[in-house]
């Protein structure tokens, strides 16, 4: 069964005022176990608004959200329990740390779930391990850590709730390439069991191109494109009209194709691109 299904979501900010703004317009979205869905879109395309509906931070103006088949707004007072099943990691999550020690901060979510002390401690250790934090850091103050470490603590804080769906908003923003790879490794490890799923929001195509199994492109509150990375990246015109850029390697391949080479535009990273180019050279074929 799908972990999350959002049906025809429309969200209007400050309705019936001069500041009225339609942030989402009839968006449908679903995530199945094992998937890693990339949501991309320009600033103001409604990405953050969309994911805030997944755990009930925002209530849709119209439309419905189901988590594991349950309508999350059936009982608005019970909305909090869905926060533990759909874990949301916001942009720059390191700014939300507040506890005296890393351990206590990661334990904030599990504690709010009402788990026992032992269960909490175990989850904290496991979450810290899964994001690659050394045990020696657990006793430190989160404010002493480096930027990348802080971010991993914040992500561990959400993973410790063991959500079925992990949603990350721009998890790689402001990190160096290594930090970025580590974050995506964490996400992939989280998906390894096959039971969980993840949604990664980004405005960078390169980040999602390599990792996502499916991509959704948002433009001005609507779904502009949806499909596998290869499908989505083949619509160069639509993507460029939404103000986004194709991943670097895809752009190179498109450019080659424009020049008359039979370049494969569905490549996902540099290695695949190199292989494709070697094949092209081996075949020697100009189209």
């Amino acid at each position: 069964m799908e972990i999350l299904r959002a049906e025809h979501i429309t969200h209007i900010y400050s309705p019936k005022t001069p500041f009225e703004q339609k942030a989402l317009d009839d968006v449908s979205f679903s995530v199945s176990p094992g998937e890693l869905v990339g949501v991309i879109g320009h600033t103001g395309s409604g990405k953050s608004t969309l994911i805030s509906h997944f755990n009930g931070l925002l209530r849709p103006t119209s439309g419905k959200v189901f988590v594991e088949g349950e309508d999350i707004w059936a009982q608005p007072k019970q909305i909090r329990r869905f926060r533990f099943r759909v874990g949301l990691v916001f942009q720059f999550p390191e700014y939300q740390l507040f506890e005296e020690t890393v351990e206590k901060d990661i334990a904030f979510g599990p504690k709010n779930m009402g788990l026992s002390a032992e269960e909490t401690a175990e989850r904290v250790r496991e979450a810290a391990r899964s994001v690659g934090l050394d045990e020696s850091l657990l006793e430190k103050s989160p404010f002493e850590l480096s930027g990348g470490q802080k971010r991993r603590v914040a992500i561990a804080g959400v993973i410790a709730m063991r959500p079925r769906l992990l949603v990350l908003d721009e998890p790689a923003a402001g990190l160096d390439p290594r930090g970025r790879d580590e974050i995506f490794d964490t996400v992939r490890a989280y998906l390894a069991s096959g039971e969980n799923a993840a949604v990664v929001v980004s405005h960078s195509m390169d980040d999602v191109a390599r990792t996502a199994s499916r991509i959704v492109v948002l433009d001005r509150g609507r779904v502009a494109l949806e499909g596998s990375p290869a499908e989505v990246f083949s619509h160069r015109d639509v993507i460029e009209s939404t103000g986004l850029r194709l991943p670097f390697v895809t752009r190179v391949m498109h450019r080659l194709r424009d020049r008359g080479f039979a370049a494969d535009v569905s490549v996902r990273d540099l290695d695949e691109a190199a292989d494709a180019l070697l094949r092209l050279k081996g075949g020697g074929g100009r189209a």
Partner: peptide
């Protein structure tokens, strides 16, 4: 929003 997402 972030803390609410952790069940605050």
């Amino acid at each position: 929003s972030a803390q609410k997402s952790r069940g605050a």
